[in-house]
């Protein structure tokens, strides 16, 4: 009962506030902002991730179910390459296969822009990334005990010629259960670099590892990643639960035997006692018969 009246009173207040607020809201416009990140995958496809948020008094709030468009732009031209809809975290992503042709400037720079047009009181926003094509090759080689990663990288000139990459650091990772573990950096100069793979990374139960070579936050080429599988892990034998222990489901043998011996000892005496009692009863019957 009390609850009901309270609810009623609360709703009344809320209703009033809502009315007042809606007047305020009409005049009020909300700015949005968009973040864009691009990554070139192993299969040479590219993935574009955006996060769209709107400004509110409480700070940035994700905008959901909003359509964002992606364009490739160069030298004043612009073409739509796709669009995506944000989810409840305000995120959307678009994957473009390796066959996608991006418009390029004379220097070979491509630019991808994403834009949210805005709707109602929400003002639109834009963001873009630039990148050049980079040819990245990763090969793994095994010799005796040492495992080596070879990285070859070259960019493509305006006339289609290969230009070896100069003085660039690539990061190396292995995939873990939740995240990637950085194991080192590979310095690439004149289009080539090598990296001695450490021999103490466990990998999964079969010693399999997924190795990533990544170019990160590069001004010219953006983010590029190449993944390779290798059986280079030295997995230690797994965590084996003892079969019969205090905390396993099966009890240690000595416990079972002790228990059985004790119980057999005691209960056999009980049975003996009961048998004797039964005999007493029988003897009585005999006496009666006599």
């Amino acid at each position: 009962m009390i609850n009901k009246t309270r609810l009623f009173r609360q709703s009344l207040i809320v209703l009033l506030l809502t009315i007042v607020a809606s007047f305020q809201l009409m005049a009020q416009e909300t700015a949005s902002s968009i973040e864009l990140k691009a990554l070139k995958n192993s299969d040479d496809s590219r993935i574009f991730n955006v996060k769209l948020t709107g400004e509110s008094e409480a700070g940035a709030v994700p905008v959901f179910e909003a359509t964002v468009d992606f364009y490739t732009i160069a030298e004043g031209k612009s073409e739509l390459v796709g669009s995506a809809v944000t989810n409840k975290e305000g995120k959307a992503s678009l994957k473009l296969g390796k066959e996608t042709r991006y418009l390029k400037s004379k220097e070979g720079v491509a630019e991808v822009k994403t834009s949210f047009k805005g709707l109602g009181k929400l003002i639109g926003s834009e963001a873009s990334v630039k990148f050049k094509e980079l040819n990245l090759q990763v090969t793994l080689s095994e010799k005796d005990t040492s495992n080596t990663i070879h990285v070859k990288a070259s960019s493509i000139g305006p006339n289609g010629e290969m230009i070896p990459l100069k003085e660039t650091n690539f990061n190396l990772y292995v995939q873990g259960l939740f995240s990637k573990l950085k194991i080192g950096e590979c310095f690439v100069d004149a289009g080539e670099g090598t990296f001695e793979f450490p021999n103490n990374i466990p990998g999964d139960e079969n010693g399999n590892l997924k190795i990533f070579v990544r170019l990160e936050e590069n001004e010219d080429y953006g983010e590029i990643e190449k993944a390779e599988n290798a059986k280079w892990g030295n997995h230690r034998s797994g965590f084996a639960e003892p079969e019969r222990s205090l905390w396993s489901s099966g009890a240690p043998i000595w416990m079972i035997t002790t228990l059985i011996i004790l119980l057999a000892g005691v209960w056999s005496h009980y049975i003996y006692a009961i048998v004797q009692l039964i005999k007493i009863r029988k003897e009585d019957k005999k006496i009666e018969q006599k």
Partner: peptide, 12 residues
């Protein structure tokens, strides 16, 4: 709490 594409704060 989210913003709808037309700028309304909503709870979903």
């Amino acid at each position: 709490t989210l913003l709808s594409p037309d700028g309304q704060l909503v709870k979903v």
